[in-house]
Design a protein around this nucleic acid. Structure first.
Lengths: 231, 231
DNA sequence: GACTGTGAAAATTTTCACAGCA
DNA sequence: TGCTGTGAAAATTTTCACAGTC
């Protein structure tokens, strides 16, 4: 145990913090590209869109990587966050459902953000199978299990229609994939130990609509107070 | 004030609750399509992937729409949630950036989830401008302001490359759009009162990677305890 | 003097557990 | 009896404010 490099905090980084680390990482990479060597919590927080106390608290969960009176060394912090997020290794990703969205995802350069590699594209439509997308040949969904094993896929991305998503998820799980990113508008049912995240356009729109309406209502009440009638 | 229909809770629905209402709504619509008239908090919570206490607490913020001993009437609850989310009116949406992703969004049927209407597609590339996507002609980004006003756009969707996103956001804001859904991997800077939500593939992947690594580390420690050595 | 790291307080969110009603 | 609605407790997250260190 003594010869191990001292991993600062083995356990218990709060979920809310984990969700923000990628944002900090991106901000840091922008700074690095600009040649900035050092950054204060204030400045980094600004670039990441959070307040500086939160940023410091978040980073403190990883360890003491800053220097009082100075700030954080950009390169070092990038390395530490990357390591914490598991980006120092490569994750193999399979995308199922090569429709408009799947194609967009496959071609999305940012996918190749260091740490992720698209290992396979799968679809059920014979029309699509065999085509080349993002320099990968689309394979038939039937080969999901084979592909997962041969390519060591550890993250499955589901970009199918809603109706097919649960089936694909179950097959991923069955094949041993325990991380799933779901773009289909359904709640996936998976066993404990499987991590599902969802990205859902219409949910986001609905949340925006709620706030927009609240703003409008507020204006309405404003008008009432001033003596106008609403219709 | 007395002749108004009694709006249960004018104010203060917790943000966490707002974020889940769309999920409940979708689950309810599935139930409705199946012809279910009534549902218990237990059953609806199951379909939405949350626990029943949370569901009941969430719904209690809207008012008392259930019946003790029975459950919730599906149709009525759909109406109440829709109204709360502002889906009983139509929201005009403009999408900027008609690349792979923008096309996917434009063609995404679920967009037309009652309440939203794609009013315009905009792009900067002369190659793309003028083409027809999802039965809409793509217009040049220069007409953003004109389109926002003439079509009454209230939600702007940004699907441009990272470098163009801030500029587009500022133009949206300048034109009076106060709700923005951002797919570009940058933090947008907007004034108070503007609501930005972001959808970010690579952040989601990184969060998945974090948990996947943690599971793997756990297994490692497991192995250690059992006397194996890691390499 | 400047800026981090962090206890402690405040705010928010989740969960519990049961009173109350159909 | 069965299931909602909700106070109260627990857990999590955010914010404050300042001691500690470079």
């Amino acid at each position: 145990m003594i010869s191990r490099p001292p991993r600062p905090r083995e356990k218990g980084i709060p979920e809310a913090t984990v969700a923000r680390l990628p944002v900090y990482l991106r901000a840091l990479q922008v700074l690095q590209d600009r040649g900035t060597a050092t950054v204060s919590s204030e400045a980094l927080a600004g670039a990441a869109g959070v307040n500086s106390a939160k940023l410091r608290k978040d980073l403190s969960h990883l360890g003491s990587y800053g220097t009082r009176g100075v700030g954080y060394e950009v390169e070092y912090l990038i390395y530490q966050i990357s390591r914490e997020l598991g980006l120092t290794q490569d994750w193999s990703v399979a995308i199922v459902g090569i429709g408009n969205l799947g194609r967009a995802l496959a071609n999305y350069g940012g996918f190749g953000t260091r740490g992720f590699r698209i290992a396979a594209l799968l679809d059920a439509d014979p029309e699509v199978v065999g085509r080349t997308v993002a320099s990968l040949e689309v394979r038939h969904i039937d080969s999901l299990e084979e592909v997962v094993h041969s390519k060591g896929v550890s993250i499955g991305v589901i970009a199918t229609p809603a109706g097919s998503a649960q089936g694909v998820a179950s097959r991923f799980v069955e094949a041993g994939v325990t991380s799933i990113l779901n773009f289909a508008p359904v709640v996936l049912n998976v066993p404990d130990g499987v991590d599902v995240r969802k990205v859902d356009l219409s949910i986001e729109l609905q949340i925006l609509a709620f706030h927009a309406q609240r703003r409008a209502d507020g204006d309405g009440r404003e008008a009432e107070r001033v003596g106008l009638e609403m219709t």
